[in-house]
């Protein structure tokens, strides 16, 4: 074995040929998807990409820095409304509006990060939860934000291109998601990411080694809010219509569930978690249309639960998945992946 090695190996993105192979395979797959799948599936993938962006940011906060947020729907809403209003009222071009809305969300993230310096665990959860709920309440009262009636997203135009169909959005969303995923991964491998992890693992030691807790905790919040804001800005256009109801507490919990199910503190885990739960979320909404099962669930619901019980079945399933993950696989999908890899590496022993 070559003993003389380069330090760059420790941090480089593609540590081996296998990784490069899978990365290229993934890129090729993503490039051909819009040409082989039906429109509905492209919509589903767009939806996944948005959730991936938000969960990447949330994971930097919860998984890497060890802080919690139950208010990410608030940042998501700020990003969504910000982008739409900056385009319709301030006439900014789309990409600039998206970036500015992301930065506005980041500023709110920074402000929410300030109480986080003193709060921990359940107390921080409550504070962020309050923030998330407040945002939608406030938006519901502001006239230019459409109050409770909501807002229509304008046409999406970047330079000479008009983005109309789900396929068009796909070519916008996927590159943004990939860039943000690489950025998140690189951050975790360099100085800022190490500071985040050090705060999570041993706060006092981090402090005595020179990590400024005030700076890095608020930075983690701001960065995480930025990701959520970008996700929200894109969401407004994929959905074409936004209203305060969309950004409820259950959405915040859903983001957190995606991160936890995927595996906090890993990179691929939350991405997988976001994809899996986004897919389930959309599929379970149509569960009543499935022959036999749908009818059975409907009769079950009507005889034992409320009439509307089954329409929110996705939350019941998510709750179940979350419980299962907490009890049996605290590292989430990432943990399952690690164990599978180990099993096959050492097979048949």
């Amino acid at each position: 074995m070559d003993m003389k090695r380069d330090y760059y190996e420790d941090i480089q993105l593609f540590s081996s040929g296998v990784v490069i192979f899978w990365f290229v395979a993934m890129m090729v797959f993503l490039a051909v998807v819009p040409f082989i799948f039906k429109n509905y599936y492209i919509y589903v993938i767009n939806f996944m990409a948005i959730n991936v962006i938000v969960v990447l940011g949330l994971n930097l906060l919860v998984g890497y820095t060890g802080l919690i947020s139950l208010g990410h729907a608030g940042f998501f809403a700020i990003g969504a409304y910000g982008t739409v209003v900056l385009i319709t009222q301030a006439h900014l071009p789309f990409l600039l509006a998206l970036l500015v809305a992301g930065l506005i969300a980041a500023i709110f993230g920074f402000l929410l990060g300030l109480p986080a310096l003193r709060l921990e665990g359940p107390y921080l959860a409550i504070a962020t939860l309050g923030f998330g709920v407040t945002v939608t309440q406030v938006i519901g009262k502001i006239k230019i934000l459409g109050e409770r009636q909501g807002l229509h997203a304008p046409d999406l135009i970047i330079g000479p291109w008009h983005f109309d169909t789900d396929k068009d959005f796909y070519f916008l969303l996927i590159p943004i998601a990939i860039i943000l995923a690489f950025a998140a991964r690189n951050i975790t491998k360099t100085k800022v990411g190490r500071a985040f992890i050090s705060i999570r693992d041993a706060e006092i030691a981090a402090e005595t080694m020179g990590v400024n807790l005030t700076f890095y905790k608020t930075l983690a919040f701001a960065l995480s809010a930025f990701y959520a804001g970008i996700g929200g800005g894109l969401y407004a256009f994929v959905l074409r219509f936004i209203e305060p109801e969309l950004f409820s507490l259950s959405l915040s919990i859903m983001f957190l569930t995606m991160a936890v199910v995927g595996g906090l503190g890993s990179m691929m885990g939350p991405i997988a978690g976001a994809c899996l739960l986004s897919w389930l979320d959309l599929q379970l909404r149509n569960i009543l249309d499935i022959p036999y099962l749908g009818e059975w669930l409907r009769s079950l619901s009507q005889s034992y639960f409320s009439l509307t019980g089954v329409s929110n079945i996705q939350y019941i399933v998510f709750g179940g998945i979350l419980l299962f993950i907490m009890l049996f696989e605290p590292l989430g999908i990432f943990g399952i992946w690690i164990r599978t890899k180990k099993y096959w590496k050492t097979w048949p022993f």
Partner: peptide
């Protein structure tokens, strides 16, 4: 490496674009 924290200059942006 965390001990080198104070001697490193890579911030968020330069870190993100590694």
């Amino acid at each position: 490496m965390l001990g080198r924290h104070l001697r490193m200059k890579t911030g968020l942006f330069r870190g993100a674009f590694l």
